[in-house]
Amino acid sequence: MKKAMKICLAMCLVLVFVALGVAQAAEKPFEIVIILKNLVNPVWIDMKKGAEDAAARYGAKLTALAPLKADNNEEQVRAIEDSIIRKVDAIVLIPSDSKGIIPGIEKANKAGIPVINVNTKAHGGKCETFVAVENYDAAFKVADAMAKKLGGQGKVIILEGVPGAQSTMDLNAGTVDALKKYPGIKVVASQTAKFQRAEAMRVMENLLQRYPDIDAVLAANDEMALGAVEAIDAAGKTGKILVSGLDANADAVKAIAEGKLTMSCDKRSYQQGYVGVEMAVKFLRGEKIPERVVIETTLVDKSNVDQYLKK
């Protein structure tokens, strides 16, 4: 038993040091930390890649933190607090709760660490710049295009994100506001599928029982849109029901090319991450940076899908 215990302890030691070997502290370059909403959705992975590439280009050292419980506000605040203790040079922040994050930003302000806000706007505290992709605008754009495609007539279903999340509210508001312009369009159901593909498939299967004659599904992200696509495919209704997503991730682009998904919206996650870190470096070098950088979003549909497929 004693021996087993020693082996166990030794294993722990080895494991910890192996794990810690990943994070070696460097001396000179700017140390930037990017705090993401989670590392579950491809969107944030793309953003992280963009941030890493920018860091490599500008010779900065980047660490990426994200809450272990996806989108947890408290853990994001903790990540800021811990980054302050680490005395990083700048924080690139994608808040999962626009309001709940404010105390964290205020702490960074107090510690004199610049904060670059990306993607989701923080509603308080002082951020050096906001690299904006307004979820509201992107959702509005897609819903508007879908409504036009439907000819301003039809029954639609909205698939919402995680209840309570900031992005859910913004995306939902954008979709609903766009559809309001078209009196001929009726939202027959608006249900959550928690941003997840499997959940969307289940919800969609159920909704198709009740509303077999719907004309379109508007999902608040691509994962849910693809889940809906699977459900519609299984019901043999591909092509009869239009489906839209948001993000234009790799799967979605492929589905658009195959004609299963009608459209999506490229929010340029990679670009957002890249610009976020770029702004941080520029600010640290004492260059002037704009108060707001707008990343243009592009609708992706059959007409321009080819250029996305090549990527």
Binding site: V40, A70, Q196, R197, A198, M201, L226, G227, E230, D251
Partner: peptide
Amino acid sequence: RLNAAEPVI
């Protein structure tokens, strides 16, 4: 069924 695999499931 889902035609996809991801670590979050």
